[in-house]
């Protein structure tokens, strides 16, 4: 599971109002190189919850992202230093084994072989 996916996942147990972002418990993190594509990053940037991404990256051992969300000028600038960091955080770090924890209920969703299992129990639907 990449952090771009993590940024789109929320816990939707019945009654939960604050199921985002899921806290990451990392057991095994792997990195896979992906072609750098500034257009895709610019496209996705508006949709990313910045704080959630920074925390998730940190939980995966990557602390290079700035604490505060950079403004659009940084995204559009010719200097691609920031975009490269964003690229690495969003697309190249994978949670292979571990768990995602609901911020409201503490319910754990396991991640095995890179696949988060977000299925709910009958009494949670």
């Amino acid at each position: 599971m990449r952090l771009i996916t993590h940024n789109m996942l929320s816990c939707n147990i019945k009654g939960v109002t604050n199921g985002f972002p899921l806290k990451i418990e990392a057991e095994k993190v792997i990195e896979k190189e992906v072609d750098f594509n500034p257009d895709f990053l610019k496209h996705m940037f508006a949709k990313i919850e910045w704080k959630a991404l920074v925390e998730a990256a940190r939980a995966m051992g990557y602390g290079e992202l700035p604490e505060d969300s950079p403004d659009v000028a940084v995204i559009e600038s010719a200097d691609e230093t920031f975009l490269k960091k964003l690229h690495h955080a969003l697309l190249e770090i994978h949670l292979e084994e571990g768990a995602l924890v609901c911020p409201e209920t503490g319910r754990k969703f396991p991640v095995n072989k890179g696949i988060p299992n977000m299925l709910l129990h009958e009494d949670e639907v």
Binding site: S10, N12, F20
Partner: peptide, 28 residues
């Protein structure tokens, strides 16, 4: 899991999530 294995066997990748339809993704 099998989806992931098939993707890997073809040397391509997608993010795979186990969920009912898209329930954990709908909001974001």
């Amino acid at each position: 899991r099998v989806t992931n294995e098939t993707l890997q066997a073809h040397g391509v990748s997608a993010e795979v999530v186990c969920t009912d339809i898209a329930s954990c993704l709908e909001e974001r």
